[in-house]
Design a protein around this nucleic acid. Structure first.
Length: 895
RNA sequence: GCCCGCUUGGCUCAGUGGUAGAGCACUCGCUUCACACGCGAGGGGUCAGUAGUUCGAAUCUACUAGCGGGCACCA
């Protein structure tokens, strides 16, 4: 069999995914065990306009690791994929396309435009679904969903109507965040607060009685044209007498009164506030309290209205600002202008400065829904956030302060609001036109032109994708989902709303756990962003280092922000290559051998290194299982990396090499080869959730002898590592004694290698080892493993006795357990140098002993520390002082 | 203004009451019949600072500094 020396990820990535997908391995139906436990994840649906970025790759890796792991553990596993219609983004994307043709969406009209969006989606949307296949994501494509498809739209209408009928959805005129560029309202969460330098203008409003004036401070002088009051704090002595008096609003004919309201901070500005109820959220509230008139002076395009006065009407808001200031100055009413930094509200998407406007919109009352979520958290501590700090508190605090949600949008791409108006202006909310006509008793209806906020449909995702409102088998089986893996910036936008909607409409939480990933920053610690152009394209990383290496890198990011580090991917690329070559070695020496489950059991007469590797294997599986059970991806990766590289490659393969590569085809050789293959196969299984491609590629080449290959739940499926059983962590195979004995062998070999290196002994040169071991057990261990020791330490001869009896001209080392080793080096030893080398080592040990002695000498330590801790220290001191003594003796002998 | 996170070897990060870890980088030696994307052997950290709790603190508490994040306000 020809296997190349270097792993070529592309080759492995080409074939397996399509086969897995076509054979239905990702679908839960592959599991034939009716009693199988269930594991399910609903993917955070990427935007249909989106393409894969690092954030996706990160989340998808973690979701896939868990999904593949659970599947191998025999769970009925569903990872459900899909996409979000992404209202504004998609509409903008298609509008931009139209622009190239010299058209606007209005030229097409609503119906044609929406058709065009669907066409765009069909032709070029959903790039990300192809890219997810490259990632190896084991999602069930047969259940793929789209938020604008008929089934999910139906769920959306159902929810809307229910909430309306319950009085939680209402339509009303309120002040909202308006984007003059996108021509739509936005929810509070879609507003970007951008601090920037600006100016504070002090404007003087004369009193009607000609007696003085009141000065107000404002950052937006143009809104004064819509002022309908000036407010002061009721406790502000400076203005007490003015409350109730009338002012003349300059540049207008209007007379406005001074009102008193607690809202006003007497210490800010002049302590007197101009009130523009139509164009400021706070003023709006205050206006309602005082029954103030709302004068709309700015329109939806951020231009001044006729109500602003003839000379202002039609002016852009910033031009109007200049003009207002100029006119105040001319009238001598501009007191001063000072520099002032403040946050300005911008459209999250297009960065246009928003305009607070009074507008007729649909809103969702949140109190009842919010309480459902808060009760769940208080009662059951669900969802369980990982990490709990700070997200649980952030989530709870946000819910507690929740305000009504503006759910309508002035867009064409989205779920059109299922409300119709009769000629008389009556509002009919219904699940369909037919139902509306029936309710209205007329066919003369016009549907509301607005669509719903994209996040409204996203909020239903965990259950709408499972067939709700029908009580489908999928819904019963897979809801609630097991875990949600997401980035922290959508905890409010999405996570909280899913919890509320899930509780409200299914009566159960949508997921048990919420794992919040860290963010991958660029190498300077900056957030990756399109505008900065500092993003790293996962697909390029896949091309350069392979998908598996990238996944391993991402899997260990965990919950803290991490700078992108290509060197790390490179090191995992090297790891993949290591796996490749280890398998290559096993396969090159596999003639006559096959995987055999029997070899995973302990049997009498099994060699130390075989018992040891089984112990390490089971222990590693335990570590990985525990780690994944608590979302400690990093720990799982580390355990796997070190098990494979250090234990399996550096030691096990080397220890077993002589047997495995023996010339003669003996039963012993076959057994050793089979053992090696069997352990390798288990190791590949352990790695598979993290590195699906290389493990499958190699696994398919292994000589799989018997029929045990697949997990019982997947009996009859074609050969694939992804449906094998994840290795058990069997306590009875975790062999402390074997690990301890192996440690002695490893220590011996390492110390000899150390001496060889420090003495500059040529790598090819063989040396004699004289070993003194105080205990019967140790002597037996060294004797039984002489072949391995001499091979790995390059020894010509090994002499083992109770007392070390070596020539004076030897290099020596004291080992764990009190054994000693000496290498006779007649003519090579500089006695002074050797004494120095040993003295240095003795010094180190003595220091450690002194530290421990001091601790033990503290009477309070013995008194208060747990007994086992005290004993542990005693044992360590015993061991160290023993070694110090031996070293001292050795040094003395060299004098 | 309120809340939160981070600060560990040159770099990127684990660890979170009881002997400071990894990868990369660095030094020395190696074409050892799986792998130079490799093998073997090394050097390198008073775990940001201060004070406390504790028999014992990188780990818990408080404060300080630097960096980062969220929320609110911003007339």
């Amino acid at each position: 069999m020809e296997i190349s020396k270097q792993y070529d990820p592309k080759q492995a990535e080409e074939h397996h995914y399509a086969r897995w997908e076509q054979r239905g391995y990702f679908a839960p139906e592959i599991n034939q065990d009716p009693a199988a436990p269930v594991f399910s994840i609903a993917i955070p649906p990427p935007n249909v306009t989106g393409s894969l970025h690092m954030g996706h790759a990160l989340q998808h890796t973690m979701m896939d690791v868990l999904t593949r792991y659970k599947r191998m553990c025999g769970y009925r596993t569903l990872w459900l994929p899909g996409m979000d219609h992404a209202g504004i983004s998609t509409q903008l994307m298609v509008s931009r396309e139209l622009k190239k043709e010299g058209l606007t969406r209005h030229d097409l009209g609503r119906e044609k435009f929406v058709e065009r969006v669907w066409k765009w989606k069909h032709d070029s949307g959903g790039q990300i679904t192809k890219q997810m296949r490259r990632e190896g994501a084991s999602v069930d494509w047969s259940r793929e969903k789209f938020t604008m498809a008929d089934d999910l739209s139906r769920a959306v209408r159902h929810v809307f109507v229910s909430l309306y009928e319950e009085g939680l959805i209402y339509r009303g005129n309120r002040i909202v965040n308006w984007c003059p560029n996108d021509q739509t309202v936005l929810s509070d969460l879609e507003v970007l607060k951008d601090p920037q330098p600006g100016k504070l203008y002090y404007l003087r409003y004369p009193a009607k009685n000609g007696n003085g004036s009141v000065t107000v401070a404002t950052t937006r002088p143009e809104t004064m044209l819509g002022d309908t009051a000036v407010a002061v704090n009721p406790n502000d002595d400076r203005y007490r007498d003015l409350v109730g008096t009338t002012l003349l609003l300059p540049l207008t004919e209007r007379q406005i009164t001074v009102v008193a309201d607690e809202f006003v901070d007497p210490h800010f500005g002049t302590g007197a506030v101009k009130i523009t109820p139509a164009h400021d959220p706070n003023d709006y509230e205050l206006g309602l309290r005082h029954n103030l008139e709302q004068v709309v002076v700015i329109d939806a395009h951020a231009k001044m209205t006729p109500a602003a006065g003839a000379s202002f009407a039609g002016l852009d808001r910033y031009k109007a600002r200049e003009k207002v200031v100029a006119e105040f100055e001319a009238l001598g009413l501009l007191e001063k202008v000072v520099d002032y930094e403040f946050s300005i509200s911008k459209c999250e998407r297009c960065k246009t400065v928003l305009e607070p406007l009074i507008s007729l919109q649909w809103f969702l009352r949140m109190e009842k829904l919010r309480d459902l979520a808060l009760e769940l958290l208080a009662r059951e501590k669900k969802p369980q956030f990982v990490p709990e700090v700070p997200y649980e508190k952030v989530y709870a605090t946000w819910l507690e302060n929740l305000r009504d949600w503006t759910i309508s949008r002035q867009l064409w791409w989205g779920h059109q609001i299922p409300a119709w108006f009769t000629k008389d202006g009556e509002v009919i909310v219904a699940r369909s036109l037919a139902e509306a006509e029936m309710k209205a008793g007329t066919v003369d209806l016009t549907q509301d032109q607005d669509v719903l906020d994209t996040w409204f449909s996203s909020a239903l995702w965990p259950f709408s994708t499972l067939g709700w409102p029908e009580q489908t088998k999928d819904l019963q089986t897979f809801y609630p989902t097991s875990v949600l893996i997401t980035a922290r910036d959508i905890i409010f936008l999405w996570v909280s709303r899913m919890v509320m909607m899930g509780l409200k409409f299914v009566g159960e939480r949508p997921f048990d756990d919420v794992f919040v990933t860290g963010t991958i920053l660029d190498k300077h610690g900056q957030r990756m962003s399109k505008t900065k152009g500092n993003g790293v394209d996962p697909l390029e990383v896949f091309d350069k280092f392979g998908v598996d290496a990238t996944r391993l890198t991402l899997a260990q990011v965990g919950t803290t922000d991490t700078r992108w580090n290509e060197k790390q991917v490179e090191s995992y690329r090297n790891f993949a290559n290591k796996i490749w070559n280890a398998a290559r070695f096993c396969l090159m020496n596999s003639e006559g051998a096959a995987i055999n489950a029997r070899l995973l059991e302990v049997a009498p007469k099994v060699a130390l290194h075989d018992r040891w590797i089984l112990s390490r294997l089971n222990r590693t599986s335990g570590t990985v299982r525990d780690a994944l059970g608590s979302y400690q991806f990093h720990e799982a990766v580390q355990a796997l990396y070190h098990f494979f590289w250090d234990d399996f490659c550096d030691w096990y393969i080397e220890l077993t090499k002589a047997e495995v590569t023996a010339e003669e085809a003996t039963p012993g050789r076959t057994e050793a080869r089979s053992r090696l293959l069997t352990v390798l196969e288990q190791a590949l299984r352990l790695l598979h959730p993290f590195m699906p491609y290389i493990t499958e590629e190699l696994w398919l080449q292994l000589p799989r002898g018997d029929a045990y290959v697949l997990h019982a739940a997947y009996r009859g499926a074609g050969p694939t590592i992804m449906l094998t059983a994840y290795p058990e962590a069997r306590l009875e195979l975790m062999d402390d004694r074997a690990e301890k004995e192996m440690e002695a062998v490893i220590d011996l070999i390492s110390r000899v290698r150390n001496i060889r290196s420090e003495m500059n002994i040529k790598p090819g040169e063989r040396v004699e080892l004289i070993i003194g071991a105080p205990t019967e057990t140790l002597r037996a261990v060294f004797e039984n493993n002489q072949n391995q020791i001499s091979r790995l330490a390059r020894a010509s001869r090994i002499v083992i006795s109770e007392q070390l009896d070596a020539p004076r001209a030897s290099a020596r080392a004291v080992l764990v357990g009190g054994a000693e080793v000496a290498i006779p080096l007649e003519g090579l030893i500089d006695f002074a140098q050797e004494r120095q080398r040993l003295a240095k080592e003795k010094e180190k040990l003595a220091e450690e002993a002194a530290k421990l002695e001091a601790q033990l000498a503290n009477p309070q330590f013995a008194e208060r520390a747990p007994v086992e801790k005290v004993n542990e220290i005693r044992v360590r001191i015993g061991d160290i002082t023993q070694r110090v003594k031996q070293l001292q003796q050795t040094i003395a002998n060299l004098e």
